[in-house]
Amino acid sequence: MAPKRRRMTIILVALGLLSAATVLALTALEDGVVFFISPTDLAAQTPKPGQRLRLGGLVEEGSIQRGDDAQITFEVTDLETAVPVTYTGILPDLFREGQGVVVEGAMGADGRFAADSVLAKHDENYMPAEVAEALKKSGRWQEGAETPATTGSTE
């Protein structure tokens, strides 16, 4: 019995240490692990011009303006801060006002975020269109603000 107990203790202690080390490493590397930052984070850290980063949030309602040649400007908001974004190119099918997006690029000198890629982010709600309509009609629809993830706020 004794060697079995000893083996179990060794394994459990080793796994405990390994988990602790992993938690410490992931906490220390938090900035590298997050996929995008929110407009509020961006406003707080004032990145160097040309520094590449990803910005995530919702496309502000009524902010989409289409220019010539697939050029588009819109605002990305976390419902606290909004950042104007410019982009030229093909947009994902899910891109629309009120939708979660992650844009990649750099802040321009003009205070606009110049994106060279736009990714759409969808939430964890799945339902048929009729159900979505019914929810909207009955007023039980929460637009946008369902989860921190869709609004892009970190804690």
């Binding site: 995008f36 799945y126 993830a149």
Partner: peptide, 11 residues
């Protein structure tokens, strides 16, 4: 849940 990801949370 812990980090910002492009992938959506569990459904």
């Amino acid at each position: 849940d812990w980090w910002n990801t492009l992938h959506q949370p569990s459904s």
